[in-house]
Design a protein around this nucleic acid. Structure first.
Length: 663
RNA sequence: GCUGGCGUAGCUCAAUCGGUAGAGCACCGGUUUUGUAAACCGGCGGUUAUGAGUUCAAGUCUCAUCGCCAGCUCCA
C-alpha cells in the first residue's frame, strides 16, 4: 500500500462538512469523481457528495456491479478469465474467456444469486496504488492474460481494486462496499471480440443493469417493455405496414397501408423541394462499372455493392476461361472485370455527376439542386441487418447541390431551415447538431478544408443554433453536419446530414464557366433530410407508437355501421369523402359496434364515424377521435369534411411559425 | 462475417421422459341486426423452416443449409 497516511479522503472532508450520509457512494472533487476512501489532492477546494439517487452515482454503482459479477462468475466457473468490465449508458457488462463453454440463461440466474451473496456480505471496496512490477506479478499469479496485456497500455499510476478476496486492475471509482448495490439484473449474454477487433478471439460478454433502488430498476425494465411494444417490426406486422420474406432477406415489402405512408413521406419531401428550389430527377439502377471506377465506389465501397450479370456476360467469361485458364490472381481479376461489367448503384451521387456533366454549365445555373428518390442496393453482412433500420434495398430523400464555394454557406443555412421545418412537422423537437471535422486520412488541401469547415460552422452559428464538434469524424472527402434527434422514448437517431465534397467534382472533372469566363470547379453538397425513407419510417413508427396523424395515416377515417341497415348510407358517405380525397374505409360486416371499434382502434385509425339511425336522419356521423379517445358526438358531414381537411396537412402548412425562415 | 439463442396453421402461442400435432384470433359458411374495445354455432387450415442422420418411433436428439432475434465488428 502506498497510501499516504496523512492524505485526506473525500470521506474525511464530507464528514467535517457534516454532509456525509449513509447513501453517499462517492464524491465529486473539483469536478472529478472519487470514491470515499481514496486520498484526494491536497489543494482540493470543492468537495461535494454523490448520493445514490444522483445521476453521477449510476456509473459508480454499475461499475461496482460489474466487479461483483466478475467475482461471482469466477467463483462459480473457476478458470474463467476476465477482460473488460465497464459501465455503459444503461447498465454494465464484463467480458469473460470461459474455457469450458458459454453462459446460458440458467447460468445468469445462478450468477445473480451468487452476486446477491457477495452483496449481502457487504465487503468494502479498497483501492491500492501499486508499481507496474507489482501489478504484473499479481496478474501473472492470477493468470489473467487479458489484464496483463491491458496493463502494458496503461499509464501510471496503476491502481487495483479489491472487495473481499477479489481483485481487479481498475481505475475506479467504486461504491464504499458491496452492500451499496441495491438493485441489479443480468440481462443477456453475447459474444464480443477482445478489444473490439474482429481479428481477435471472441469472448463471452454478460450484460446487466443496475440502479440505485429496486424502484428505479423496475422503471427501467418497464421502459424496455414500452420500447418493445413500440418496436416498428412488431407494429409493422400488426398494422399490416410491411413484411419480409426469406426469398429477399433484409429487403422490405411495403404492403398497401405501409406503401401509402411511404408515398406520403416522399410527397411531403417533394412539397419541401418545391419550396426550397430543388429539381427531381430519375436515374438508372444499373451502370457500367466504369462509372463506379470513376466515382471511386468500386475500389472503396465494392464490398457493399451488388453486381449485375447477364447470361451473355457469363458466357463471355466461360469462353475466355476455356480459351486460356488464368494463371494468377491478377489474371482472374482481369477476366472477371472485363466480362462482368455492371454494378447496381449503392448511392445516387455518381449518376448526378453524370447529369451535371451532360452540358456545359454556367455559374448562372448554380446552385443546382438535384433530388432523387432512387432505389439503392447495398449488400450488408447478414448479422447487421435489422428491421427497416438496416436493409439491403432502400431509398433516400437524397439530393446533391452543385454550387460555388461562395454559395456553400447560404446553401447550408437554407438546409438548416429545411431540416428543422421537416423534423418539427413529424413531431421531433429534440434535435442536436454535430459538426464532424477533417479526419486524419483525407483528400484535398488543408486550405480548402479550412474554408469548408468554416462555412459549416458559420452557417450553424449564424442561425444561432447550438452544436457539438466531432473532431476527426468527417468523411474523407469533406466535413459534415449531422442531425441527431431523440424519439418519444428518448432514443437517439442520426437521420439527416449535409456534407461538403471536394473529391467527386475532381474525379468527374466537373466544371462551370464563371463570370470571369474561365473554368471553375464546383463544390458538391450531399444532403438528406429524413435520410433513408425506410429508416425514417421505422423511427417515425416507433416515435408515434403506430398512431400516425391524419395527414400520414393510411386510413384517415373508418365508417362503422351499427347494423347492416345503414350500409347504403355508409357507402354513400365513403364515396363522398373519397371524392374529397380522403382515405376512408367502411366496416360493413355483421359484427357488433363494439367489435368494429375495437378492430379500428387496434389499427390506430385517427377517426371513427359511427353510423346508425340518428346519423342517417341527421346526415352526419357520430365521430370518435383516436387521440382524444372519446366519442365527440354527432357531427354533420360538412363539418367532418372540414375537420379532416384541417388535419390533412403537415403542421407547417397551418403553423405560421414553421417555414417562415426561408420564405 | 463472428458468438449465443430461436424457427410448430396467416397471427399469438401450447404439446410432460422421444410415443396419435392442439387452442384462441384471423379466414369460409350459417344464425344474430346489433349504439362506442371481442355475439353465437359449424367448418377450412400443418411434409413442425429446408435437407440429411440416429431410433421400433423425432416437433422433441445429432449434423448441414436458410431465415429471424440479441450482441460484437461495420453502417443511412
Amino acid at each position: 500500500m502506498t497510501r499516504d497516511a496523512t492524505a485526506r479522503t473525500a470521506r474525511d472532508v464530507l464528514e467535517e462538512q457534516g454532509v456525509l450520509s449513509s447513501d453517499t457512494v462517492g464524491a465529486r472533487v473539483d469536478g472529478k469523481v472519487y470514491d470515499l476512501h481514496t486520498p484526494i489532492p491536497k489543494g482540493a477546494s470543492d468537495v461535494t457528495p454523490i448520493r445514490a439517487q444522483d445521476e453521477d452515482a449510476l456509473p459508480i454503482i454499475r461499475h461496482s456491479s460489474a466487479h461483483v459479477m466478475a467475482d461471482a462468475v469466477q467463483r462459480l466457473f473457476p478458470g474463467t478469465k476476465v477482460a473488460f468490465g465497464p459501465a455503459t449508458a444503461d447498465g454494465f457488462y464484463y467480458d469473460y474467456d470461459r474455457p469450458d463453454g458459454t453462459f446460458s440463461e440458467d447460468d445468469l440466474r445462478a450468477i445473480e444469486e451468487k452476486m446477491a451473496e457477495i452483496i449481502e456480505a457487504d465487503r468494502p471496496f479498497r483501492r491500492e496504488v501499486v508499481s507496474r512490477k507489482q501489478a504484473r506479478e499479481l496478474l501473472k499469479s492470477l493468470d489473467e492474460g487479458f489484464k496483463l496485456e491491458h496493463l502494458e497500455r496503461l499509464e501510471d499510476p496503476i491502481s487495483l481494486y479489491r472487495h473481499g478476496e477479489w481483485v481487479d486492475l481498475c481505475e475506479g471509482p467504486h461504491v464504499p462496499s458491496t452492500g451499496f448495490l441495491k438493485a441489479f439484473k443480468l440481462t443477456s449474454v453475447a459474444g464480443a471480440y477482445w478489444r473490439g477487433d474482429e481479428r481477435n478471439p471472441m469472448l463471452q460478454r454478460i450484460y446487466g443493469t443496475a440502479f440505485a433502488s429496486p424502484k428505479a430498476l423496475r422503471a427501467h425494465l418497464k421502459q424496455l417493455e414500452e420500447a418493445k411494444q413500440r418496436d416498428h417490426r412488431k407494429l409493422g406486422k400488426e398494422l399490416k405496414l410491411f413484411a419480409f420474406h426469406p426469398h429477399a432477406p433484409a429487403s422490405p415489402f411495403f404492403l398497401p397501408r405501409g406503401a401509402t405512408i411511404y408515398k406520403l413521406l416522399e410527397d411531403y419531401v417533394r412539397s419541401l423541394y418545391a419550396r426550397y428550389g430543388y429539381d427531381e430527377v430519375i436515374t438508372p439502377q444499373i451502370f457500367d462499372n466504369e462509372l463506379f471506377h470513376t466515382s471511386g465506389h468500386l475500389p472503396s465501397y465494392g464490398e457493399n455493392m451488388y453486381m449485375a450479370v447477364t447470361s451473355e456476360n457469363l458466357e463471355n467469361l466461360q469462353e475466355r476461361i476455356e480459351k486460356e485458364l488464368p494463371q494468377t490472381a491478377e489474371q482472374w481479376a482481369d477476366a472477371f472485370e472485363e466480362s462482368l461489367r455492371f454494378g447496381v448503384k449503392p448511392m445516387n451521387c455518381p449518376s448526378h455527376c453524370l447529369i451535371y456533366a451532360m452540358a456545359k454549365r454556367s455559374y448562372r445555373e448554380l446552385p443546382m439542386r438535384m433530388a432523387d428518390f432512387g432505389r439503392l442496393h447495398r449488400f450488408e453482412r447478414s448479422g447487421v441487418v435489422q428491421g427497416l433500420t438496416r436493409v439491403r434495398t432502400f431509398a433516400q430523400d437524397d439530393a446533391h447541390i452543385f454550387c460555388t464555394l461562395d454559395q456553400v454557406q447560404d446553401e447550408i443555412k437554407s438546409f438548416l431551415d429545411l431540416v428543422h421545418d421537416a423534423y418539427r412537422d413529424f413531431g421531433f423537437t429534440d434535435v442536436r447538431i454535430v459538426i464532424a471535422t477533417r479526419p486524419e486520412h483525407r483528400l484535398g488541401a488543408d486550405h480548402i478544408w479550412d474554408q469548408a469547415e468554416k462555412a459549416l460552422v458559420e452557417a450553424v452559428r449564424s442561425k444561432g443554433l447550438p452544436y457539438d464538434l466531432a473532431a476527426g469524424e468527417g468523411a474523407f472527402y469533406g466535413p459534415k453536419i449531422e442531425f441527431h434527434l431523440k424519439d418519444a422514448i428518448g432514443r437517439p437517431w442520426q437521420l439527416g446530414t449535409i456534407q461538403a465534397d471536394f473529391n467527386l467534382p475532381e474525379r468527374f472533372d466537373l466544371t462551370y464557366v464563371g463570370e470571369d469566363n474561365t473554368t471553375h470547379r464546383p463544390v458538391l453538397l450531399h444532403r438528406a433530410i429524413l435520410g433513408s425513407i425506410e429508416r425514417f419510417f421505422a423511427v417515425l413508427t416507433e416515435h408515434l407508437g403506430g398512431a400516425f396523424p391524419v395527414w400520414l395515416a393510411p386510413e384517415q377515417i373508418a365508417l362503422l355501421t351499427v347494423s347492416e341497415k345503414f350500409n347504403d348510407y355508409a357507402q354513400s358517405v365513403q364515396k363522398q369523402l373519397q371524392d374529397k380525397g380522403f382515405r376512408v374505409t367502411a366496416d360493413l360486416s355483421s359484427d357488433k359496434l363494439g367489435a368494429k371499434i375495437r378492430q379500428a382502434r387496434l389499427m390506430r385509425i385517427p377517426y371513427l364515424g359511427v353510423i346508425g339511425q340518428q346519423e342517417v336522419e341527421g346526415q352526419g356521423l357520430a365521430l370518435r377521435s383516436r387521440d382524444e379517445n372519446k366519442d365527440l358526438g354527432f357531427i354533420s358531414l360538412p363539418e367532418v369534411i372540414d375537420r379532416l381537411a384541417r388535419e390533412n396537412q403537415p403542421p407547417s402548412a397551418t403553423d405560421s411559425t414553421i417555414g417562415d425562415s426561408h420564405r
